[in-house]
């Protein structure tokens, strides 16, 4: 019974592969390229330490959760994950709120120097982060924010602001101008019009911008590395980069930590894949 089920499943798959042979080949190739290294990391994370140092076999003979236990229960990684969550969430909220107001002004209000503002945004995002690191560090120390999550979150928010503003401006511009005008005629102040009409209608754009900012902040390394100094403020990527190894690199633990750190962003990316692709390609293809 069970066998015939498998056969059936197997044969429908065969039918599909025969019908879409080219597609299947392309998918296999793309899949191997994109997922191969990650899969190997997953395999590594499940192997007991003594099996890590011998190859073959490629497929592990024994599977263990010891690396995950160690990483999740005995290391400071959970703390770093929590830090990353706080930093990324607050950076996202800040960048989206501040960016939405600015983008709305750029898209619909008669302010002067719009091209200057967008130009400054572009230069800001072009300037190598390494150049601002030391003044930024001094600045944060001046504010008493050295080695705090606030410093990292704020920095991430500001450096993703250009992206958020560009994206949101184009989303606001896509909404019919009449909707804003109607809101004004109906008695809204610009704030009311933004909050009651424009923002609800720009929700898909807000979601895209928020996702991109969140992923940027979660993955960012250089600012997080230099603005934090202790285990209690370290973000996840910094923790992975500075993974403690006393004598030799604990490859199994490192693999487990890598996957754990990747999980939230990979999950987001997969869940909202369509939105993210729309956001990444917005503008670059049309313009």
């Amino acid at each position: 019974m069970r066998r015939s089920d498998d056969d059936q499943a197997g044969s429908t798959m065969m039918v599909w592969i025969r019908a879409h042979g080219f597609t299947a080949c392309v998918l296999l190739f793309v899949g191997l390229f994109c997922l191969g290294p990650v899969l190997w990391q997953a395999v590594t994370s499940l192997k007991p330490d003594q099996d890590l140092v011998r190859l073959p076999p490629l497929i592990p003979e024994r599977v263990t959760s010891v690396h995950y236990d160690r990483v999740l229960l005995q290391s400071s990684l959970p703390r770093s994950l929590a830090n990353s969550m706080v930093v990324a969430a607050s950076a996202t909220v800040t960048a989206i709120v501040v960016g939405a107001f600015c983008a709305f002004a750029l898209a619909r209000l008669p302010i002067a120097g719009k091209s200057v503002i967008l130009g400054v945004a572009l230069v800001t995002s072009m300037f190598p982060p390494i150049a601002v690191i030391s003044p930024l560090y001094l600045l944060m120390r001046e504010f008493g924010l050295r080695d705090t999550l606030v410093a990292v979150g704020l920095t991430h928010a500001v450096y993703s602001l250009p992206l958020a503003v560009w994206l949101l401006t184009s989303f606001f511009q896509q909404l019919p101008k009449e909707l804003y005008q109607a809101a004004r005629i109906d008695g809204c102040t610009p704030v009311q019009a933004l909050l009651t009409i424009m923002l609800p209608l720009a929700r898909p754009g807000l979601a895209v911008a928020a996702l991109l900012v969140f992923i940027y902040s979660w993955n960012e390394f250089m600012f997080a590395l230099t603005l934090t100094a202790s285990d209690t403020t370290r973000t996840a990527p910094v923790a992975v980069a500075l993974f403690p190894g006393l004598y030799e690199i604990p490859w199994g633990d490192l693999a487990a930590a890598s996957l754990v750190v990747t999980l939230p962003v990979a999950g987001l990316a997969l869940a909202f894949q369509r939105h993210i692709i729309a956001g990444l390609t917005a503008g670059s293809v049309k313009g």
Binding site: L27, V30, G31, C34, L35, P37, V38, W40, Q41, T44, I215, W218, N219, F221, A236, P237, V238, V240, A241, F243, W251, L254, A255, S258, V261, T262, V265, A266, L268, A269, L270, Q273, R274, I276, I277
Partner: peptide, 21 residues
């Protein structure tokens, strides 16, 4: 799309560790 977006979403630091291994 699902597969292709994964390397993009992975933190650079993590992908460096993956490749180091």
């Amino acid at each position: 799309h699902v597969m292709i977006i994964l390397p993009w979403a992975i933190p650079t630091v993590v992908s460096a560790q993956i490749w180091a291994w």
